[in-house]
């Protein structure tokens, strides 16, 4: 995995996108790993009885996908400082999802290279169902 440096980042740069597609099996694995056993994420009948069109992806799993977007991009010596997401619409399994982002700001703060990004998870129709923000601290080449 490559390392991103503060000097190499400019406002307007793209956060390298990642693709995801959550199978129903992944939702079950996530339920087990996270301890979120709410049945709308793996029991189709239960989900439909709750007025949904079928099982839906855990919001927190989409949050995890957006976390990976940022940690992959910043590299092992980057530090994630802040990660926020809002769940604007539901997402469904077996759908091609894209996580992407844009650099919106950079500054040096207490000797650290701070970079801010707007990020979002998009559904197959291209709608940003889960927008958010991330703040990372990146290493500097001189340091």
């Amino acid at each position: 995995m490559g390392q991103l440096y503060f000097e190499d980042v400019n406002v307007g740069d793209e956060v390298t996108p990642i693709q995801k597609n959550a199978s129903s099996q992944q939702l079950v694995k996530y339920a087990g790993a996270s301890g979120d056993y709410y049945q709308i994420h793996y029991d189709d009948g239960f989900a439909r009885n709750n007025g949904l069109d079928g099982i839906i992806i855990h919001g927190a799993l989409k949050n995890a996908f957006l976390g990976q977007l940022v940690t992959d991009w910043m590299g092992p010596h980057g530090q994630l400082k802040k990660l926020s997401v809002s769940y604007r619409a539901m997402d469904f399994p077996n759908e091609d999802l894209v996580c992407s982002g844009t650099v919106t700001g950079k500054r040096v703060e207490g000797g650290a290279g701070i970079v801010e990004c707007e990020i979002a998870l998009h559904n197959a129709a291209g709608k940003a169902t889960t927008p958010g923000k991330a703040i990372v601290s990146l290493p500097m080449r001189g340091a």
Binding site: G59, A60, N63, Q79, L80, K81, K82, L83, S84, V85, S86, Y87, G132
Partner: peptide
């Protein structure tokens, strides 16, 4: 509904 989440590390 789960509206969202904001982590600080």
């Amino acid at each position: 509904l789960d509206g969202g989440s904001e982590y600080e590390f």
